[in-house]
């Protein structure tokens, strides 16, 4: 189990989801004459002027708004996890750091581990703050996920992100009780350099990949903390579709009531590095002091990070300081496949 010497918590959190929605039936209409199934109802699509940088900036601003009095110049790390960084070479994080006023005396870096790039940055920040090297560290998980036209992934590959400002437990709205990572070399999903779209192993992405890693990380952490599923009010998993998190929840012994508040996949799709972290912002929006949250991410390649959180009394007053996750979900403009093709940069100009 990963547990810092000095207690660390979430001082502020923020979500961002673009306003455009592509109904899965649109993908179905184009590629299967409307005869295929749909793994989610719809997904969030970034507007033409949005990317991981702009998503991260707004999420980070929301996190800082909830943190209240924290001066951005005290943030010692700005870390952005994503698999759709706008540049191959040139950090996303420096742009975000500049935009929130955290520069220049700060660490900045981009993280990459498929859909768990955000939670691994979160864990690294635990170490940064927990060691006393930094008072605050800001982590973001965000994506504008790519999918090959007609691929199964095109129904779900969405856009969105979440940011967390980690700091001393005494200033926090949720305290990190512990964390656990479980990683193996499992090639279930990948994108080679210079490739526009990722490839995946079909059904291989299920049992030996998603399920095995999430179950192992969750059980490892609960065992180390001597916890049962019933100790948690909420559980949030990585959400590549609606079915996987429901199934893995059942396997681990969680109820659908514990899962529901953080389940966003049906409404915004799979936001990759943003997925589990956005599920967590939705939970924090409604959580009450004394409640516990278990978060388990999954990143292809493969690994899972489990994080256990205890909500503090500070949360109530901070929830309303920035737009809630559900506010962004409610801000919905439906688009058709043609508009999606344009916004997602699939139109050759």
């Amino acid at each position: 189990m990963l547990k810092p010497d000095r207690p660390v918590g979430i001082v502020g959190y923020g979500a961002y989801i673009p306003r455009y929605r592509l109904p899965a039936t649109e993908v179905d209409r184009i590629w299967t004459n409307g005869q295929g199934g749909t793994p989610v109802r719809e997904k969030a699509v970034a507007g033409p002027d949005e990317d991981v940088v702009t998503i991260s900036i707004e999420a980070a601003r929301n996190a800082l708004a909830r943190a209240g009095e924290v001066r951005p110049s005290l943030i010692r790390a700005v870390w952005v996890g994503s698999e759709s960084h706008p540049y191959a070479v040139k950090p996303t994080s420096t742009i975000v750091a500049e935009a929130i006023g955290a520069t220049p005396y700060t660490q900045a870096g981009d993280w990459e581990f498929a859909c768990k790039a955000g939670t691994e940055a979160f864990q690294a920040a635990l170490g940064f703050v927990g060691s006393g090297m930094a008072r605050y560290a800001l982590v973001v998980g965000a994506d504008t996920a790519q999918a090959r036209p007609g691929d199964d992934l095109e129904y779900t590959a969405g856009a969105g992100g979440a940011a967390y400002l980690l700091g001393p437990a005494e200033e926090s709205l949720a305290v990190v009780e512990g964390s656990c990572s479980y990683v193996t070399d499992t090639p279930d999903f990948w994108r080679r350099a210079y490739q526009r779209y990722p490839s995946h192993g079909g059904r291989f992405t299920g049992q030996p990949a998603y399920f095995k890693h999430i179950v192992a990380a969750a059980q490892g952490l609960m065992a180390a903390l001597d916890r049962q599923p019933s100790d948690y009010t909420y559980v949030v998993f990585h959400q590549p579709n609606v079915k996987f998190p429901q199934t893995v929840g059942k396997q681990l012994g969680f109820t659908s009531q514990q899962l529901a508040p953080g389940m966003l996949c049906n409404e915004i799709g799979n936001t990759y590095a943003g997925s589990s972290l956005l599920g967590l912002t939705a939970v924090l929006d409604v959580a009450a002091p004394g409640e516990r949250v278990l978060l388990v991410s999954y990143g292809s390649g493969a690994g899972s990070d489990a994080i256990s959180l205890l909500i503090t009394g500070a949360i109530t007053e901070r929830q309303g300081r920035a737009p809630r996750t559900r506010d962004y979900i409610a801000r919905r403009v439906e688009i058709d496949y043609a508009t999606y093709v344009r916004y997602a940069g699939k139109l050759i100009m």
Binding site: D49, E50, A99
Partner: peptide
């Protein structure tokens, strides 16, 4: 809000 002002072509920086 902070957004892309110019996406730039593949060879140029993005302007936010």
């Amino acid at each position: 809000v902070t957004r892309k002002i110019q996406g730039g072509d593949e060879g140029n920086p993005i302007v936010y």
